[in-house]
Write a protein that binds this DNA or RNA. Structure first.
Length: 629
RNA sequence: GGGCAUGUGGCGUAAUUUGGAUAGCGCACCUGGCUUCGGACCAGGGGGUUGCGGGUUCAAAUCCCGUCAUGCCCGCCA
């Protein structure tokens, strides 16, 4: 778990801090300020810089350069540091190229596939939920964004030492499913394509019919029967939903998105989890049943009790939030409350699980009426990857937890509110059929087909690979290109999808990074490279140039991974991969490796390190490290 | 009406949490580079009053106040 970059920063901070404590203890500067003032400056200033003297100077009424110089006097020796100096009030240090390189390269060798990992989440179990798509349509590109973010966050947290449980929530009881069931029975027709696609198209048709005929009452009654355990409707709904989920998971599998367990909404009802949870909430007064007024017969959250919990609840015109309808059926929020009670182990109820299969080396289980007991759930931390549109219900959920006396647990529910995906023409509505598009469909399947066929064309031209591998490599490139494209943007930003940029394989893209990786691999192969002991390599041949820039970057992996985990932002990793790639390209373009005489061993070793770190980072985003393309 | 999020060269995006050195990068555009370790590449160039207006500060994309625009939410939908 060596992190050279962290090591040197810690030393820098400690050195400065002891100087500050001695000379400027009255300035009110705290250690965290010092940490925050460290940055990587422009190359000409050094390898690491610190602006704290500017801040101290202000507090003390002194000149920044005088403060900086005084602090520099107090900084002790460090083998990793070759020079400390003051420039314009900044304290800049230069690293000892040889020593620092040895540390970075040694760390990468020692940790190998776990280089960059962290113990941030040790002994902590996190349950990550994604993408929870209704089982009545194919995944569209918005669902895909959710799934990829969830998958990457899971990978990253896993790398940070958390025990990660990847969970999917199958909402097979909502009104949407009632409508799909109605369509399935009333519209006729036989599935003549991938089932999720076919069912999704049915659903769009149902909504057209519903615009002409008022079927609300019928749907309500159907939904009610679906919630009756053992009814014909409940069995049929589950059956159809199940078939649809199978089709959706085919897509997930193509993208390399996997889960550990599927939780079916109908099982939350069936296993009395819902009833137990609501009873608990009613008993301790967090929720209450209205006997009269406009919400008579409903179980509600009295918003007057939670006004101070979030600004969202401050509007006095809103009084009750309906949790259970007057006809006794549960709203989405009700089921989500119950579900989260289970997730955090706050209710004495559990599911039975059956084994579904093995995908991507991962065993998949599903809740089921029959099966065995397993220890899913009871997590320390819950991460929900859900669209930002659902902020309000997520807040309601937390408010109910707080009212029940579970403030701490409420804080352990994290809503990763990702910005929704739209297309130039409008929304991707499942109901209106926006996802169907007019030419190419905006489905995850269709996008992958496009990306793969584009990759196929490019791959065919490659002279580096044999024909029988072309198809496999094209699939890997297509899938990775999309993953990178979706993950490089900060999750909370809304995205307008465009085919042109999704299928861009140049510049800051997955294929560019993969290609550069393959080149590095190819050089190692050509050189007949075999890793030798570090102390037999002449590291004096590392210059203070592109080679060392790359080494410094490689040393930062752990900090990058931790930041990405703490902020639930896979784009931090994507950025880092881009940086690594660009830096490697510059190095490779300007400094010869094979045939560079005495520098060859050191440079090959640098390639080796770049390959290892890039591979580790690729793994976090689910990008395939193909060796030739 | 209230709440939340976003606003950075033509387009897209990073840095905003913790205020610091010339706002980083990609696409597109212009110039140059393949008998050279793999051109899905590299080098160089043009293009920015960080939505707008105030304020705090030696220093603001970053903090504060105001304002505008866009999207979403505020349902016995999910």
């Amino acid at each position: 778990m060596a992190s050279p970059s962290k090591g040197i920063k810690t030393w820098f901070v400690e050195s400065l801090w002891s100087g500050i404590s001695e000379l400027y203890s009255s300035s009110g500067i705290e250690k965290s300020h010092v940490m925050g003032s460290i940055s990587v400056p422009k190359k000409e200033f050094g390898d690491l810089g610190c602006s704290i003297a500017l801040r101290i100077a202000k507090a003390q009424g002194m000149r920044p350069s005088d403060v900086a110089k005084a602090l520099i006097e107090k900084i002790g020796k460090n083998d990793l540091v070759s020079d400390v100096r003051e420039t314009g009030g900044y304290i800049n240090i230069s690293l000892n190229v040889k020593e620092y390189s040895a540390q970075v390269l040694g760390g990468i060798e020692k940790d190998g596939d776990s280089y960059g990992s962290s113990k941030l989440g040790e002994k902590s179990k996190v349950l990550v939920e994604y993408p929870a798509v209704n089982p009545n349509k194919p995944w569209h590109i918005g669902h895909l964004r959710n799934a990829l973010i969830g998958d990457a966050i899971s990978n990253i947290m896993d790398f940070c030492g958390y025990t990660v449980e990847r969970e999917d929530y199958i909402d097979d009881l909502g009104l949407q499913i009632a409508e799909s069931l109605w369509g399935y029975e009333s519209l006729g027709g036989k599935p003549d394509k991938k089932f999720d696609q076919w069912l999704g198209e049915r659903y769009v048709e149902v909504n057209k019919v519903m615009k002409e005929k008022r079927l609300d009452d019928q749907m309500g009654a159907l939904l009610k029967r679906m919630e009756d355990v053992g009814s014909r409707e409940s069995l049929l709904a589950r059956q159809i939903a199940s078939k649809c989920v199978d089709a959706q998971y085919e897509t997930a599998c193509r993208y390399g998105v996997y889960h550990d367990v599927m939780i079916w909404e109908s099982d939350i009802v069936k296993e009395k989890l819902l009833k137990k949870s609501l009873d608990l909430a009613l008993r301790n007064g967090a929720l209450e049943k209205r006997e009269s007024g406009k919400n008579a017969g409903c179980i509600v959250l009295d918003l007057n009790k939670v006004r101070d919990m979030a600004k969202d609840f401050e509007n006095p015109e809103e009084t009750d939030k309906i949790i259970v309808r007057s006809d006794g059926t549960a709203t989405y929020v009700a089921k989500d409350i119950a579900f989260h009670m289970w997730k955090l182990g706050l209710v004495d109820a559990s599911f039975k699980y059956k084994h579904i299969g093995k995908e991507g080396g991962r065993e998949l289980y599903s809740t089921s009426s029959e099966g065995k007991d397993m220890d899913f759930g009871k997590a320390d931390l819950v991460v929900n990857v859900i669209g930002s549109a659902q902020r309000y219900p997520q807040l309601v959920l937390k408010a109910v937890f707080s009212l029940m006396g579970h403030e701490k647990e409420a804080e352990r529910i994290v809503h990763v509110a990702y910005g929704e995906v739209s297309v130039e023409g409008g929304s991707l509505s499942g109901r209106e059929g926006g996802w169907m598009g007019s030419g190419k469909a905006f489905t995850a399947d269709s996008l992958l087909n496009e990306a793969t066929s584009k990759a196929y064309e490019a791959t065919l031209e490659s002279k580096k690979i044999v024909k029988e591998n072309v198809q496999d490599i094209a699939c890997a490139i297509g899938r990775s290109a999309i993953r990178f494209e979706f993950l490089k943007v900060s999750p909370h930003k809304a995205v307008v999808f465009s085919w042109k940029s999704a299928l861009n394989f140049e510049g800051n893209s997955g294929p560019y990074c993969m290609y550069t990786f393959a080149r590095a691999k190819s050089i190692l192969k050509k050189a007949g490279y075999r890793r030798m002991e570090l102390d037999k390599i002449n590291l004096d041949m590392i210059e203070h140039s592109y080679d060392f820039e790359l080494i410094k970057l490689l040393g930062e992996a752990q900090e990058v991974v931790e930041k990405s985990a703490q902020e639930y932002s896979p784009n931090v990793i994507a950025d880092y991969i881009s940086l690594l790639t660009v830096n490697f390209s510059k190095f490779y373009e300007s400094m010869k490796v094979i045939g560079s005489g005495g520098a060859q061993d050191a440079r090959l070793r640098l390639l080796d390190a770049y390959v290892q770190v890039t591979k580790n980072m690729f793994g976090l985003l689910g990008i395939d490290a193909v060796e030739s393309m």
